[in-house]
Amino acid sequence: MKHRFSLERYFDRIQNSEDVSELFEHLNASDLTYNEFQLEKACIDAADRWALLDEISGDRQERRE
């Protein structure tokens, strides 16, 4: 059975509560399992690190809208 994500469980693992709140809202994280949230966050962090990943992700987003 999947555990649905709990912000309180993740809260202890991060330092900046504003970042998490914004991320939580952006991802609608309450619908995700913890593993799914980790992957989502990892991909957002990756896009922040590498310009090409950011561009591809942005292009995909534009085509969805």
Binding site: L39, E40, A42, C43, D45, A46, A47, R49, W50, L53, S57, R60
Partner: peptide, 14 residues
């Protein structure tokens, strides 16, 4: 290396 891990995660996600 970090880039390969990041791309691996992105492929898994996408």
């Amino acid at each position: 290396n970090l880039l390969e891990r990041d791309i691996y995660d992105s492929i898994q996600h996408q």
